[in-house]
Each structure stands twice: as C-alpha cells, then as structure tokens.
Lab assay of single mutants.
Amino acid sequence: IRVFLPNKQRTVVNVRNGMSLHDCLMKALKVRGLQPECCAVFRLLHEHKGKKARLDWNTDAASLIGEELQV
C-alpha cells in the first residue's frame, strides 16, 4: 500500500493477513511524530479524479493491497 503522508512525505507499507490499517501504519506515523488518534486516513479514488473516501483505522489492510492512501 502506498501512503501519502503530511509534509509531502510518502511511504510504502507491507501488509500481512489480519493486519489493520492502524497496525500497518503505526511505525511510519510514529517515526514522523504523528499519532493515528490525531489523523484521518483516506483511500484515493482514481476513477473520480481528486476524490477520496475516509477509512476506519480498524479496516482490514489486506483489502487495500495495491491502493493508494492519504493520511
């Protein structure tokens, strides 16, 4: 999953079965001084340019493999 972060940063996270978005993104956020409780995560909708859909931090990350997200 490719993730666009604040301050023009980005990362790619690996996903294993059973992991939530929170689990996958925790380290990437922590390294940058961010906390999931203070952030929202969105899936970028490529079929609708510029649109995005808000996701819950408990979403199964395996269902988002190959997607691009924005925090």
Rank of each mutant, 00 (worst) to 15 (best):
R2M: 13
H48K: 15
R54F: 07
V15G: 06
P36G: 03
C39H: 05
L21Y: 04
F42H: 01
L5C: 02
N58I: 06
F42D: 03
M19F: 07
S20I: 02
L55Y: 02
E67V: 03
K27H: 15
D56I: 03
A61E: 04
R10E: 15
H48F: 11
Q70C: 14
E67A: 12
R54T: 09
W57Q: 04
I65A: 14
R10G: 10
P36F: 04
P6W: 00
F42M: 07
S63Y: 03
G66N: 06
Q35A: 13
Q35G: 08
L34V: 04
E67Q: 13
T11Y: 05
A53W: 08
H46V: 09
M19Y: 09
C38F: 11
K52S: 10
V12Q: 10
V15F: 07
E37M: 06
N58A: 10
I1L: 08
I65V: 13
R2S: 14
W57M: 04
Q9M: 06
R2W: 08
N7T: 01
R43Q: 09
R16N: 12
G50N: 03
K49D: 15
V13T: 04
M19L: 09
L29Q: 00
A62G: 12
L34S: 00
L25G: 01
N58P: 00
A62W: 09
W57F: 03
S20F: 05
D60T: 05
F42V: 01
M26N: 14
P6R: 03
H46Y: 11
R16P: 07
L64M: 08
L21G: 01
H22P: 01
N58F: 04
N14I: 08
A62N: 04
H22R: 15
N14F: 08
P36M: 05
N7G: 13
L55K: 05
L55C: 06
V31E: 13
V13S: 01
G33V: 04
L21P: 01
W57D: 04
N58W: 04
N7S: 07
L5D: 09
M19I: 08
F4H: 08
L45N: 15
Q35K: 14
K8Y: 02
S63W: 02
I65F: 02
R10H: 14
C38S: 14
V41N: 06
R43V: 06
N17F: 06
Q70V: 14
H22A: 14
V3E: 00
L5R: 08
M19H: 03
I65H: 04
S20H: 00
P36N: 03
G33F: 09
V12Y: 09
R16S: 14
L29C: 01
Q35L: 10
G18S: 05
L34E: 01
R43T: 05
K52M: 14
A62Y: 11
L44N: 12
A53E: 15
D23N: 12
M26G: 14
L5S: 00
L25P: 07
V12C: 13
I1M: 08
M26D: 13
R43H: 13
V12W: 07
C39F: 01
T59C: 13
H48W: 06
Q9P: 03
L45R: 13
C39T: 03
L25I: 06
K27F: 08
A61H: 03
N58L: 07
Q9A: 08
G18F: 00
Q9C: 05
V41D: 05
P36R: 07
E68H: 08
E68M: 06
K49W: 03
E67I: 05
L45Q: 15
F4L: 15
L29N: 03
D23F: 02
